[in-house]
Amino acid sequence: MTQQATPSPTGKPSQNFGTSGIEAMERPGFITRLLMGVVERVERLNLRHSKVGNPPVYDKATFPWVAEIEREWPLIRAELDKVLARQSELPSFHDLSPDVKTISDDSRWKTFFLAGYGLKSDRNIEQCPETWRIMQKIPGLKTAMFSIFEPGKHLKPHRGPYNGVLRLHLGLIVPEPRDKLAIRVSDQVCHWEEGKALVFDDAYEHEAWNHTDKTRVVLFVDFVKPLRFPASLFNWLLLNVAVFTPFIREGADNQKEWEKKFYAQAEALRNRPQP
C-alpha cells in the first residue's frame, strides 16, 4: 500500500490513519481508546495547520539547523563506535517497547536510547556527551537514539503513531552496496549517506531494509513538527501527556531494567582482578 498526503474531497490534505495488514500498536481499555480518538482528531488538525507542508520526505534545507548537525557528525560517530564495542548486549527495539512486536520481533533491530518524550537515560547520555550536546541544537527535540539494523533486517511497512513530530535519520554507518540498503517512505525510496541527514514524516507508511552483510546505524531523532495555532497548542498538550501513557511508561521501565544489567556487567569487568 502506498500512503500519500492527497487532497480529500474537501480539498484538504489527508493521511491514512493505519497500515493495511499490520495490527495497530495500541492497547485495550477505555482511557487508551479515548486517547487514540483524540490523537486522530488532532492529526487531522496538524495536517491543516502545518507550517512546512505535508510531504512524505522533506528537503532538509527546510530546517536550517540540520546543516549544523551534519557538520559535527564525526563526533557522534566516534561515540557510536564505543557503544558498538558491546553491540551484542544492546537491547532489541521490541524488548524495550513490546508494541513494536507488530512490526519487528527478531533481534536484528537494536537501539541505544538517549531520550524520549520527557524521559532521559542519564547513564547512556554519559557515554555520549558530544552527541547529547549536538542534539540540543534541534528545536523541539522529542526522541534521540542510535538505531542499529544488523545484516538481513527488513522492517515491515507501517506508519508511526502520531504526525505531530517529524523524523530525522543521520547516517553514521552505511555499508555498501547501496541498492541493498534503503528506506521507503510512501512512494519514495531513499538511501542513507554517512554524515548526511534524511528528514521525513513517519506518519506515512514506510519500511526499511538492510540486505547487506554489514551493520547499518543511524542517529534516530523525532522533533516537533512546526505548526500554526491552534494545532500547535493541541500538539504541545498531546506530546506532554504522552509520558503518562502505557506505551512510554512500559518502555521506560524496560529501559531501566536493561541499564541495570548492562552497567552492572561493565562495573564487574572493571573490578575483575587482573591476572
Rank of each mutant, 00 (worst) to 15 (best):
P64C: 09
E43F: 06
I138G: 02
Q87L: 15
L141W: 02
F229D: 10
M25I: 07
I173G: 00
S121W: 07
F112K: 01
W236A: 08
K12P: 03
T215W: 03
I76K: 01
V185I: 15
A144E: 05
G251R: 08
L90E: 10
T6N: 09
Q136F: 04
Q4A: 14
T212I: 13
S20P: 10
G37D: 11
G195N: 15
M145A: 12
Y263K: 00
A208Y: 09
L34R: 09
R33H: 15
K260T: 07
R159P: 00
T131Y: 06
D187S: 11
E176R: 13
M145L: 13
S97D: 13
G53V: 06
V39F: 08
V52A: 08
P129C: 06
A252G: 11
N254S: 11
R178S: 11
K120D: 07
F244I: 12
N235Y: 04
E176Q: 14
F17V: 03
F262Y: 15
W65R: 05
K260P: 03
K214W: 05
S147E: 02
R270V: 11
A268M: 10
F229Y: 14
F229W: 11
Q15M: 15
N271P: 01
D201A: 05
H49V: 04
Y263T: 01
W65I: 06
R178Q: 15
L170I: 02
G53L: 04
R44G: 05
P74A: 12
P9D: 01
Q15F: 13
Q265R: 15
G164R: 00
